[in-house]
Write a protein that binds this DNA or RNA. Structure first.
Lengths: 276, 276
DNA sequence: TAGTGGTCTAGACCACGCT
DNA sequence: GCGTGGTCTAGACCACTAG
């Protein structure tokens, strides 16, 4: 593997009589292969394989929804055992980067699936099943990044961002007011028309049309009072208590690519969370 | 394993020439051992091992903080390979029921550790490191379960519950007002004195003094306005927006054992969440 | 030095989905 | 029937901890 280009550790394809094996103090727990480290930071083989697979995901070699090579093929490609590849994919699967389907193969995760639609939407109805909201895009414009947004997006203040404001309704009741800031360079060509035309989750649009896949996010939730302008959009009195949800979303390499501020009505819905 | 007492599947210790192996249509993927099922519900061996270990945790055979038998010993006890035990413990570890420590062994998880203290407290300061709050117990009393509480605790309405009200402060600022309802039968003898005396997290007290370990919880978060009585306890004006966090905590076997309603000030703190 | 969990391998069979 | 992921085993060596 690695064609002799060490990252942290070089795995030598030596099956026996390892002459240069100076019983390293920092080796992997390999069985048949022998491994030594080039630096004090130890990294198991399966983590290196995981990193290599992640690179292929990030580079677009395997696109969302597509089938990736089977475990046996990856094992032979990387010159490791299937078990090692398996452990790497286990972690990728746990991180929702990849989805395994018994009998079919392993697929790159995509936001175009039922199961993904509610992964980032924690607002649930108090009674009954979760439903897909209706979207109404209020505004899309290009602007200069406010200082706070620029800081969160790891950009310079004043850099170009795309700003979106939209309202989501459940059963005709406006419930979520979202404001989004996206790096202008990544989302060039995003217009109100394309947003409105597109059916399905917005992250699906970002993934398919702009090649940016949201992987994880952090949220900060607060209680606030509805301002008059907000009250109009959400059809509530000014002073109504609302949840303020500040989200920062990340793509591969922990790169922030979205700042979102949502205001949620919680009279018939609640923000659901599992602690474990 | 199981001494011939089948749960879902019987693992026969037959190493070769399995005469009675009628090529079952629903067997485990065993290598050397042969396995057949007694019912149509298939359960992998490691899941059965996991269930057995969980039983020992639940029964108190191994108490919180204690070392459990090593993987090799469990493997020999259950007559399976170490790899199978390992996979079972992997899952228990992922569920925070157990903590692995390389070179030392596997320990029963406990709320008496640094790492556990913040597992169920999602309120974080906007700036700086998380700190342990100061507790002030306002009230402890025995009462009859309100209908809603009884429903959530899987009890009959009117059954005895213990009610606790307390205020938690950060840097002297009252920030959290908690109201708790606990099943009276499980927490008999819980008094305001014992709560006040006890240093450390409340779940640690529950675990040590009452033998009930909280494993997971669900929360429903809403935005509400401070009532006058609440405003006094949290030192805010009536009408101040607060987070309302309704928690139901579960112990082994998904049994609900706590209903908690927290009101959080979010002027200098926020409810933190990771989406992945 | 002994014992524990952590990594890695090789090989076997099973459940599943498709052709 | 074949290929995929899922389970299980046996054995090896490594990293870490403690006596």
């Amino acid at each position: 593997m690695l064609d002799g280009k060490p990252v942290f550790m070089v795995k030598l394809i030596v099956m026996s009589s390892a002459a240069s094996n100076q019983s390293s103090n920092n080796a992997s727990g390999a069985g048949s292969g022998v491994a030594i480290t080039a630096s004090p930071t130890f990294s198991p083989l399966y983590q290196q394989i995981k990193a290599l697979i992640t690179q292929s995901l990030q580079s677009g070699e395997w696109k969302p929804g597509e089938l990736i090579p089977s475990e046996v093929e990856l094992a032979s490609r990387f010159k490791v055992s299937q078990g090692t590849v398996r452990k790497a994919i286990d972690e990728l699967s746990a991180e929702n980067l990849v989805v395994r389907r018994q009998g079919k193969g392993t697929f790159v995760a995509t936001h175009h699936e039922e199961r993904a639609h509610y992964r980032f939407l924690r607002l649930m109805p108090d009674e009954g099943e979760a439903k897909q909201p209706d979207n109404r895009v209020v505004e899309v414009k290009r602007m200069r990044a406010p200082a706070e947004v620029a800081r969160l997006l790891d950009m310079k203040s004043g850099d170009s961002v795309i700003f979106i404001r939209r309202v989501q309704s459940f059963d005709g009741v406006p419930t979520i007011l979202d404001e989004l800031w996206l790096p202008g360079a990544l989302f060039r060509g995003l217009t109100v028309e394309r947003l409105v035309e597109y059916k399905g989750p917005m992250y699906g649009l970002f993934e398919t049309e702009f090649g940016t896949r949201m992987i994880r996010a952090t949220e900060r939730v607060r209680a606030v009072l509805a301002e008059p302008q907000v009250g109009e959009l959400l059809d509530v009195q000014p002073g109504t208590p609302l949840l303020s949800v500040e989200r920062v979303s990340f793509t591969y390499g922990d790169k922030p690519v979205e700042v979102r501020r949502g205001l949620y009505r919680t009279d018939t819905h609640h923000y659901h969370n599992e602690l474990s």
